[in-house]
Amino acid sequence: MFLAKVIGSLVSTQKVDTLRGHKLLMVEPYRLDSTNRTDLVSAGRTFVAVDTLGVGQGDMVLITQGSSARLTPETKNLPIDTVVIGIVDRVVVEQNTVFDQQ
């Protein structure tokens, strides 16, 4: 699993039938800043993810990739590689809050 921020959405009018009706998002993975361990910083990449929870732009989410992305009831047998599996409320590292949705 990875932390990621929803940075946008993607519209595809032509796609395989199994993807019809599934919301597609642009997500940017984040990681703990190794220099101070008190901030989250971009990992410098982006992915297209299937949204199974109804998240919005700017939300911090949990994503999973690879074959694990096809193990949720909502994504079983879909031709996908990344799926949103959770909405992050807070991240605490070594008793320091590095992210809080408030």
Rank of each mutant, 00 (worst) to 15 (best):
V55N: 02
L10S: 13
V11G: 11
R37V: 04
S67M: 08
D59L: 05
P29I: 06
P29Q: 10
V92G: 04
G21T: 11
T97K: 10
V6F: 09
V88H: 06
A4T: 01
K15W: 12
S12D: 13
N77T: 04
L40I: 03
S42A: 15
R20D: 15
I85S: 03
V98T: 14
G56Q: 09
V91E: 10
G44H: 02
T38W: 09
N36H: 12
E28Q: 15
D81A: 00
I87A: 06
L3A: 12
G66W: 00
L32V: 14
G8E: 11
V93E: 01
H22W: 10
D17N: 14
K15H: 14
G21N: 08
E94V: 12
L10N: 09
I7S: 12
V11I: 15
P73A: 09
V6C: 06
R31V: 15
V48C: 07
I87H: 05
L40Q: 02
G56A: 04
V27A: 09
A43V: 00
R37M: 03
P29R: 09
L24V: 01
V27G: 11
L19F: 10
S42V: 01
N96W: 15
L25Q: 03
V16G: 07
Q95D: 14
E94K: 14
L40T: 05
T52Q: 07
V16E: 08
Q102W: 14
F2C: 06
A69I: 04
G66V: 03
V93I: 05
Q65A: 02
P79W: 00
Q102F: 15
D81H: 01
M1A: 14
D100Q: 08
S9C: 12
T13M: 06
N36K: 13
L53I: 01
D89A: 03
T38H: 14
I87P: 01
G86P: 02
G21I: 08
Q65E: 01
R70N: 01
G44D: 06
K76Q: 12
D33G: 03
V88Q: 04
L10F: 10
R31D: 10
F47C: 02
T64R: 07
V16W: 07
F99N: 02
K76H: 07
T46K: 09
T97D: 10
